[in-house]
Nucleic acid binder design. Structure first.
Lengths: 119, 119
DNA sequence: TGCTATGCATAGAAAGGCGATACATCCACG
DNA sequence: CGTGGATGTATCGCCTTTCTATGCATAGCA
């Protein structure tokens, strides 16, 4: 699991999803939760206990940077993507796509409903 | 992460890949390793320390069943999918597809190479 | 006054994946 | 005949990710 694909691809795609959401424009934790819920049509609810450590991890890796909201006095912590984060996102997104195609080549036949050719 | 999608979808898709490989026809551990390497064009190498516990887990869940090769006297342990495994595979494959579409809707714009319209 | 939504955070447990290690057989090459 | 590499299954302990539970604070509404 160590050659071309990062091992994270085998784990979840959460890092990637969160990073791409921040890449769309500045976000804070709670807005990311809502965005994930929205794009998944309320199928995925990203727990706070998952999200915040994840954000700290991404920031520690230099992929995003944060800034406390000055306006309301430390209510929201805004995140934006860094240049390194953009590079990482593009690369990881391409890898994810390749990986997904590989998975799909295996499971596709079983996911599809039987074709109504004979039915 | 607990409503319609199983949480495993956030983790790897390994269970699903292995289950679908076994669904293609009887397999033993080593042949599954080779098959994964092949379909991923040698991009993914499934470590033995990952595969065998995974197979034991699937068997414990009743999704596959095993039988030692009688011919050569306990050299290979053959696995085949059970009826419950087939049902599980179909459902999980459909869920994975939905989840992948959700991920793709987020990361697709960042994975794509810039269109050579102006280049 | 309470209940709900917003908003961030950590601690501890559970689980998956990986590297290392172990052991046995088979075959090709020298 | 010996040695190394491929085949073949298995476990252990570590590391990382994810989840549950908990904590705290503010805002708005009934």
């Amino acid at each position: 699991m160590q050659e071309s694909f990062e091992r994270e691809l085998l784990r979840g795609s959460l890092d990637l999803m969160v990073l791409s959401i921040i890449a769309e424009g500045p976000q804070y934790g709670y807005s990311i939760q809502k965005r994930v819920a929205h794009v998944s049509r309320e199928q995925v609810s990203l727990a706070a206990g998952t999200l915040y450590p994840l954000l700290h991890r991404l920031e520690g890796d230099g992929l995003i940077k944060s800034r406390w909201d000055e306006e309301t006095g430390r209510r929201r912590k805004w995140y934006e993507i860094t240049a390194a984060g953009k590079r990482s996102l593009k690369q990881k997104a391409q890898h994810w796509q390749q990986y997904a195609e590989c998975v799909w080549s295996l499971i596709g036949p079983f996911a599809a409903n039987p074709k109504p050719l004979t039915g």
